[in-house]
Amino acid sequence: MIHAENIYFKYYKEYVLKNINFSVKNGEIFGIIGKTGSGKSTLVNILSGLVKPDEGTVFIDGKNIFNKKESGNLLSKKISTVFQHPEKQLFNKCIYDDIAFSMKNQNIPEDIIKKNITEVCKFLNISDDILNSSPFCISGGEKRKCALACALVTKPKILILDEPTSGLDAYTANKFLNYIKEYHNKEKSTIIFTSNSVGNFAYLCDKILILDNGEEKILDKPENIFKKCKELGFSAPNIWQIISIINSKGYNIPEKTSTISEMQENIWKLIKEKEVENKCKI
């Protein structure tokens, strides 16, 4: 369990995070949403144990992560962070070395490194050609996938993603999302992500924290956040907007519908129900 308590952080004399409090249960997906400059990335750095807050602290499974015993290498075994534009971090002579980098820093034996890399590459569809190529010779989407592999290869208990789909096209972003979804289903690890919009990611979450100018504006379930999107200054996901229009006409499509295929199924169900109703009337 992750528990953030009274977090305050300032750059020079200006507070960028003020009194942030939340808890994330093990295996939950937690979204941090806020506009540019709202303090999302700073909060990610604090949750990763990389930056110490001016006040308050973060507990993981009851242990203060800023205690000397918990920090550094020990923490990197528990938490993996995918930063904004993570492709920047790739620098080794081949992708394999980059994926193995964090495990080598943790002194994990070579055979386990090989096994983990094979597994993660199979999971993310990274071919041997890409594994052996230089990180400077592959496409942006592939680089992002490899950066995700760098984070997943250690099988972290906690995965933190800072705006993971920024700069990606819709197709690649969707694919990326599916990998994270699958990984969560498989490993049941805790996932924290940040985003600047209440987009596709929001559906995956168990809880969402909306940050506004470094302050906690609202902490609630996604369905409740979607209802308040206008007040909060965000636009609700397209599927949610369509559902609310259809439901306002007296129909009842489940609010948890998150994908186009689920939407298709629900609409077919509605049509069939209507047909049955009409037949009964005749």
Partner: peptide, 9 residues
């Protein structure tokens, strides 16, 4: 920060 998170001390 990035390399610290990857275990570089």
């Amino acid at each position: 920060l990035i390399q610290k998170s990857r275990g570089v001390s």
